[in-house]
Computed example of a mutant assay.
Amino acid sequence: MKKMFVTLALGALAAAAHAGAIDSLENFVRNAKTGHADFTQVITAPPRDGQPGRTKSSSGSFDFQRPNRFRFEYRKPFEQTIVADGQTVWLFDKDLNQVSQRKQVKVLANTPAAVIAASPDLESIKRDFELQPLPDQDGLQWVQATPRQKEGQLTSMKIGFRGDQLAALEIQDSFGQRSVLTFNNMQVNAPVNPQTFHFTPPKGADVLQAP
Rank of each mutant, 00 (worst) to 15 (best):
M4D: 15
V6C: 06
T7E: 13
A9Y: 07
A12E: 05
L13A: 15
L13S: 14
L13N: 11
A16C: 14
A16K: 13
A17G: 13
A17R: 12
H18R: 14
A19V: 12
A19S: 15
I22V: 14
D23E: 15
S24C: 10
N27F: 04
N27I: 06
V29Y: 03
R30M: 13
N31F: 04
N31C: 05
A32C: 13
T34L: 09
T34W: 05
G35D: 08
H36M: 11
H36A: 13
H36R: 10
D38S: 12
T40Y: 05
Q41K: 06
V42I: 13
T44N: 08
A45E: 08
P47A: 11
G50L: 09
Q51C: 01
P52S: 10
P52W: 10
G53H: 13
R54C: 03
T55L: 06
T55E: 15
S58G: 14
S58A: 14
S59P: 06
G60H: 03
F62I: 12
D63F: 14
D63T: 03
F64R: 06
Q65W: 13
Q65L: 14
P67V: 03
N68K: 11
F72A: 02
R75G: 01
R75E: 10
K76W: 01
F78E: 14
E79G: 06
Q80I: 07
Q80L: 11
I82W: 03
V83Q: 09
A84F: 05
A84N: 09
A84L: 13
Q87W: 05
T88N: 07
W90Y: 14
W90L: 08
F92S: 03
F92D: 04
N97T: 03
Q98Y: 00
Q98R: 04
V99Y: 05
S100Y: 00
R102H: 01
A109Y: 11
A113F: 02
A114L: 09
A114V: 05
V115A: 05
V115I: 15
A117P: 01
P120M: 02
P120V: 03
D121N: 15
I125Y: 04
I125P: 04
K126T: 08
R127P: 04
F129I: 10
L131T: 07
D138P: 00
G139C: 03
Q141E: 01
G152P: 01
G152Q: 07
G152N: 07
Q153D: 13
L154F: 09
T155P: 00
S156L: 00
M157L: 12
M157P: 00
M157N: 00
M157Y: 02
R162L: 06
G163H: 10
Q165I: 10
Q165E: 12
A168K: 15
Q172I: 12
R178K: 15
S179T: 15
S179H: 02
V180N: 07
N184E: 14
N185H: 11
N185V: 00
N193R: 09
P194K: 02
T196D: 04
T196A: 01
F197E: 01
F197L: 02
T200W: 02
P201L: 02
P202I: 09
P202E: 05
K203W: 00
G204R: 08
Q209G: 04
A210T: 11
P211S: 10
